[in-house]
């Protein structure tokens, strides 16, 4: 349901507009990272094979040196290259709909990308190396050093869960945060509908509501009703669910006999429009009625 969104991170743009970005979830980020790792491994294998072909043909030492440098460049440069080129996305992140943005609301600069990716080395690649070959950290090191590697990896892997915006150490140092690429569709306005007589939306309404009748509900209930219409319009809810809703509203606003059958839908649509008009007008005067038991000062 659209009402449920992940944790939000406020970013203030240079226009002093506060935008709430949804934080990229841990699972999405892990999948994105795994995808990127897979691509890196693929590139490494390809360059190694190319190196072997070269060693067979040309000078072996130069080919060996080229492979050694290529491995370094691929490992260090993959994230740098893509995040710089695609303004904060890598193929893995793009696949998962993730993106790196600056926490201070400014543009994502090269320094930030460099800083956050240098830390990746310490956070992941190094402890993994230690884990698989403990001797690389301490000559002759064995199981105990591997344990250190695991501990090291765990500390950095769990780090994002200990801050509000799920930042890993690299994000912390660089001043960045990974967000979900925003996306939403503009749907038709629920308050615009053809009246039963077939004339335009702005024609006279069939039902009239008094200010007293419109004073019961708040914004939350209005949005629930909007959601109901959207589900009805997209076929995700059967038309039968409207009758009980109509009855409940009639009881609440003391309408009298609830309209039946086709009239129930017309009633609900007109009630929605009237209720929204009422609440929007109150909003302009600074009285924001959040929900039905919320009492604003002017009431």
């Amino acid at each position: 349901m659209e009402l449920i969104r992940g944790k939000l991170c406020p970013v203030v743009t240079p226009e002093s507009l506060e935008l709430d970005f949804e934080i990229g979830s841990a699972s999405d980020r892990i999948v994105a990272f795994a995808l990127d790792l897979f691509l890196i491994a693929l590139l490494l294998v390809v360059s190694a094979i190319a190196g072997m072909v070269l060693i067979g043909s040309a000078s072996p030492a130069i080919a060996g040196a080229a492979v050694l440098v290529a491995l370094f460049v691929i490992r260090q440069g993959y994230f740098l290259f893509f995040e710089l080129r695609n303004s904060g996305t890598t193929p893995g992140k793009r696949n998962q709909g993730l993106r790196v943005v600056a926490r201070d609301g400014g543009p994502l600069t090269g320094e930030m990308i460099v800083a956050r990716n240098l830390l990746r080395d310490v956070e992941f690649f190094l402890p993994i190396t230690v884990l698989f070959s403990p001797a690389s950290l301490l000559p002759g090191g064995g199981g105990l050093i591997a344990l250190v590697g695991i501990l090291w990896l765990l500390i950095f892997l769990l780090f994002p869960w200990f801050n509000r915006y799920r930042m890993r150490c690299g994000d912390l140092i660089a001043g960045t945060v990974v967000i979900r690429q925003p996306s939403a569709k503009l749907l038709p306005d629920v308050a615009v509908f053809a009246s039963p007589t077939g004339s335009a939306a702005a024609s006279r309404a069939k039902f009239d509501f008094t200010a007293e009748q419109l004073s019961h509900y708040g914004i939350r209930e209005l949005e629930v009703l909007e959601d109901l219409f959207r589900r009805l319009d997209s076929g995700r809810a059967p038309p039968e669910i409207m009758a009980p809703v109509c009855e409940k509203i009639c009881r609440k606003i003391q309408w009298g006999d609830p309209p039946q059958d086709a009239d129930a839908l017309v009633f609900l649509r007109e009630f929605y429009r009237a209720q929204r008009g009422h609440l929007e007008r109150r909003l302009l005067f600074g009285a924001r009625k959040e929900h039905k038991s919320h009492v604003t000062t002017e009431e």
Partner: peptide, 26 residues
């Protein structure tokens, strides 16, 4: 400030955010 159409507000929030990411990309 004036609209209680939630879909409209969410659309504008995301549209502005997407445009912001494009305008301030480096």
């Amino acid at each position: 400030a004036i609209s209680l159409d939630r879909n409209l507000r969410e659309y504008l929030e995301t549209l502005t955010a997407r445009a912001y990411l494009c305008v301030y990309s480096n």
